[in-house]
Design a protein around this nucleic acid. Structure first.
Lengths: 135, 135
DNA sequence: AAGAACCTTGACGTTTACGATAAGGTTAAA
DNA sequence: TTTAACCTTATCGTAAACGTCAAGGTTCTT
């Protein structure tokens, strides 16, 4: 059991962030003392890490809220599982779309690099004729 | 030459967006009349499209501002070209990083889908024994 | 029992990328 | 020349994801 400050440190986030996540219904403390102190366990750490990594790839906290449970909750009904599967597939599609777009951007960038390099070596040749080497 | 409303329509953005881009130094009209009317040309359209696609893969307008010139400006000095090349490579790295992260997320998702599917078919088997088909 | 160091709930501030008026000037068509 | 349709600047509003106090309660250490 960790207090909010400790687990925040371990997870590399601020306490404000954790309280905010709680407010959004993303992550609750595993226990709350009678005095209102929040306590977290090791599983909390996994969840925070997962949230952060999903955020990193472009999901909003709202979208994450929709899917974060799928990584951790063990639903028992058939219907729940099917719903889960649906979410997962939608999520997968979104990610695949983003990957495609990034690949496209990458290809264009590489092309740009090539032509820039070519023009650069053309300039270098002209430099050779006029000036010679530097070292 | 297009007025702001026309090019906005063609590009699928609002005039507000274009004025905002201008404010950020991302994209200026190719010409401004004495009365202050903004006029854009076909090249503007390409730039807007590029901005949008970069935005789509997760770059902020601020980041885009740093790199958008690389796609369009033709530097003429050797030094400028080398600098451009550097920028291009940095940008490429960033994009490759994002791709990696997305691939990781994708792999995890696929795994999740598999195990969910397995659990689902286990439930289905049990259902068979007890109930039978629905149609 | 007294501090230091932590925690609590507000509540206001900030950045990003625009949307939505408002109040008025310009252009183009009838 | 009038009017619709467009343009201008200016300003206020918004959602997201927190940062940053403030004012006070709690826990831990000494």
């Amino acid at each position: 059991m960790y207090k909010i400050g400790e687990i925040a440190k371990q997870a590399g986030v601020t306490t404000r962030t954790l309280r905010y996540y709680e407010q959004l219904g993303l992550l609750s403390p595993s226990e709350v003392s009678t005095k209102g102190y929040r306590y977290y366990n090791d599983n909390s750490l996994n969840i925070i890490t997962r949230i952060r990594s999903l955020q990193h790839v472009g999901l909003s906290l709202d979208e994450i809220k929709d899917v974060i449970g799928l990584y951790f909750k063990q639903k028992k009904q058939v219907e729940a599982k099917e719903k889960t599967l649906n979410y997962l597939h939608v999520h997968l599609n979104e990610i695949e779309q983003k990957i495609k777009l990034l690949h496209k951007a990458k290809a264009e960038l590489k092309e740009q690099i090539q032509t820039t390099q070519q023009r650069l070596s053309q300039l270098a040749e002209k430099g050779q004729k006029n000036g010679g080497s530097k070292s």
